[in-house]
């Protein structure tokens, strides 16, 4: 039996739907959610209490300056969702050091950067920022 016009349209529609499902999960395909859970032990993360100071757009993805501040934090971890690996760096602060740091990082393309802070009372705080890079840093 020759395919009817309706069959062809349905096939097209389901193929489109199938293509859309994986597209919805692409952002987290480098495992950033699992990496953050490994850092927090799966604990809830509250928004706020962490400041991520980074450019919204930057020319050179090979060296993007990032400053992170979380008053009262004993550790701060940085993650990304667009590089091959989600981890960036984990800072552990002793009592003499202010819980803030500046570092330069590589971003393979425009993506989100996350800062997750472990506070002195054991709770976790999170913020994120989208950073657009003109030239990717993982060539």
């Amino acid at each position: 039996m020759a395919p009817t016009r309706r069959d062809v349209l349905l096939l097209g529609a389901s193929a489109t739907a199938a293509a859309l499902i994986p597209a919805g999960t692409v952002e987290a395909s480098n495992g950033v959610d699992r990496a953050i859970d490994a850092f927090t032990g799966g604990a809830a993360r509250l928004e706020g209490g962490v400041l991520l100071d980074a450019p919204e757009i930057f020319d050179n993805g090979g060296a993007v300056p990032i400053r992170v501040v979380a008053e009262g934090a004993r550790r701060i971890a940085l993650f990304n969702d667009g590089n091959p690996n989600p981890g960036v760096a984990v800072f552990t602060f002793g009592p003499l050091v202010t819980p803030e740091a500046t570092i330069r990082i590589r971003l393979a393309g425009s993506q989100n950067v996350y800062a997750v802070a472990e506070m002195a009372d054991g709770t976790f705080r999170q913020t994120s920022q989208k950073i657009a890079v003109t030239v990717g840093g993982c060539g």
Partner: peptide, 24 residues
């Protein structure tokens, strides 16, 4: 005593630059 410790991943730029604030 450890003042600050940083674990770095490959996402850190070449010639790693780290800046922090401390008091003694």
């Amino acid at each position: 005593e450890v003042a600050i410790a940083v674990d770095l991943e490959p996402a850190v730029s070449a010639d790693p630059y780290i800046q922090f604030e401390m008091a003694v």
